[in-house]
């Protein structure tokens, strides 16, 4: 089977200056005093795994284990210090909803702005526009500036834009369930639909039951390293025992 995501020996190191230097003066003084020391923080250490086409891969681990960093590396937002990541096909990273929303612009303008930022083409957005508006249940508010929306409405709009696309590779940081109880149920269904429709999914969650239910394989990250990877049931069981 075709490999969609290939993570090869990825290490991510952050240099943390002993005091975050953000002015030329501070930099010059620290340099002159020879105090320009960096503490290295290794967020990911030699992580390797791959995800095959159509597979739903779960990513579990404690806070600070490196899950979000790994997602950012795979999405191309961070460049790994070492190693390489190859992603085939078009990717829809859903790390945040409503990226680039401008609260002074109308809902309609924001659909196009946010859609463009997510990498949709103009034709695609035009053809899906009605669907997005219908799903978001915004109704006549669509031509009002976002600043007049309730936070639930903003979240619904953001969710509707983000999930209108059926990508080849979907990267999800926590299942996004937004709005009131009814819409939460609707958005959960949409996510499940997206994730079960033959799409390759890389999925981070703290809800271990959800992971077990959804994923075929699971990678368990701990302190930036792959603690264990394998079939979903086995890893989830181990993970639960260790906590």
């Amino acid at each position: 089977m075709e490999t969609m995501i290939e993570v090869k020996d990825v290490s991510m190191r952050f240099r943390m200056a002993n005091d975050r230097i953000s002015s030329i003066k501070e930099y010059a003084i620290a340099r002159l005093r020879g105090k320009l020391k960096y503490n290295e923080f290794e967020a990911l250490k030699h992580v390797s795994f791959d995800v095959k086409r159509g597979e739903v891969m779960g990513l579990i681990g404690h806070n600070g284990a490196g899950k979000s960093t790994l997602l950012k590396v795979i999405s191309g937002i961070l460049k790994p210090t070492e190693g390489s990541v190859i992603v085939r096909g078009n990717v829809a990273p859903m790390l945040e909803l409503g990226s680039g929303f401008d609260f002074d612009m109308t809902g309609r303008e924001n659909i196009f702005l946010n859609g463009a930022i997510l990498g949709y083409s103009e034709e695609f957005l035009k053809s899906k526009y009605d669907e997005i508006v219908a799903f978001s249940e915004i109704g006549p508010f669509i031509d009002m500036p976002l600043r007049n929306y309730s936070s639930g409405m903003v979240a619904r709009l953001a969710f509707s834009v983000a999930t209108v696309v059926v990508p080849e590779v979907l990267i999800v940081d926590e299942v996004l369930a937004v709005g009131d109880a009814e819409f939460q149920e609707k958005s959960r269904r949409r996510m499940m639909e997206l994730m079960s429709g033959g799409t390759t999914v890389l999925f981070v969650s703290h809800d271990i039951e959800q992971i077990r239910e959804m994923c075929s394989r699971v990678v368990w990250l701990e302190n930036g390293m792959v603690r264990k990877a394998g079939a979903s049931d086995e890893i989830c069981h181990l993970y639960k025992e260790n906590n």
Binding site: D102, D104, M105, E109, F112, L113, A116, I117, G119, S121
Partner: peptide, 18 residues
């Protein structure tokens, strides 16, 4: 191209909002 057009129009609208 589409993204840039969107960003430019956002900058422009933001500049003269209200």
């Amino acid at each position: 191209g589409f993204l840039i057009r969107q960003l430019v129009s956002r900058d422009f609208k933001a500049k003269y909002k209200r």
